[in-house]
Design a protein around this nucleic acid. Structure first.
Lengths: 132, 132
DNA sequence: CTTGACCCTATAGTTACTACAGGGTGCATA
DNA sequence: TATGCACCCTGTAGTAACTATAGGGTCAAG
């Protein structure tokens, strides 16, 4: 199948597919006489894997490691679990950070009196306190 | 004060200070005879504002808008509130997305039996389902 | 004078795409 | 056959917000 079909089948953009091939995440595709990329089921499987992992927020680096691991079916699952768990911890951290941030922002916005900038609580919070 | 002192005073990197000047977020600094940047309290105030807004997750674009607004103290606070509220909504969305993602990832990791890759639930979840 | 911290500009790299320019291919329709 | 449109190709550059590096200058203390 052509690149457009592969892209559509996996919910990926054509340009992104080419990008993944360029960075080595996807193996080079066979070509037609017109130099069009021609993909088979192996590529479909691999790109699907990539798409799912990206959707779960794995970085391309982590994803690449997962792919390498998944190619050796006798490999211990520990390494996979390690990557996934570290990723989960990062997401936890991000949620924590964002939640803290959200609280602060909400506090600032709630204090806004909707007057002028001169007495705006939001601006006031951002501006440095006058030296006393 | 020199760039290093300004950077330290605001918890910003020297390179980032130069970057902000380059993109126009910080006004051009006065220079010493040695061509070193020389900063006064105006720059300190402005960079502090930038740092705080960045810490609250505002994009440079939104931040730039806030700075423009804050320069006109008679301006209505509505625009400021608008920017901040839209930012808050984005953070809310991000938290939602990450929370959903976390749930899915946790589910997958919990299903891991710690065997081999061949029967790894994590890999299995990422791999496309066999055609049936 | 030497040394080390700091300063400068210019350029490129990071991450993961995304957009665009310019040109080729294939198929359906008039 | 000609045309039009969707799709394909490579190469390059842009996005956001920094960050790192190369190569060179300045300043102050020893």
């Amino acid at each position: 199948m052509k690149i457009g079909a592969l892209a559509k089948a996996t919910g990926t953009k054509v340009e992104t597919v080419r990008y993944y091939e360029k960075i080595g995440l996807l193996p080079l595709a066979a070509r037609t006489t017109a130099n069009y990329r021609d993909y088979g089921s192996d590529h479909l499987a691999r790109l699907s894997f990539i798409r799912r992992a990206r959707d779960l927020g794995f970085t391309l680096k982590a994803l690449s490691e997962l792919l390498t691991l998944s190619d050796d079916r006798e490999q211990s699952c520990e390494a996979v679990d390690d990557i996934a768990s570290r990723h989960l911890a990062k997401i936890d951290q991000k949620i924590d950070d964002l939640t803290t941030l959200r609280l602060e922002l909400d506090r600032v916005i709630s204090a806004c009196q909707h007057g002028t900038v001169g007495d705006c609580k939001i601006i006031e919070t951002l501006a440095p306190r006058p030296l006393s």
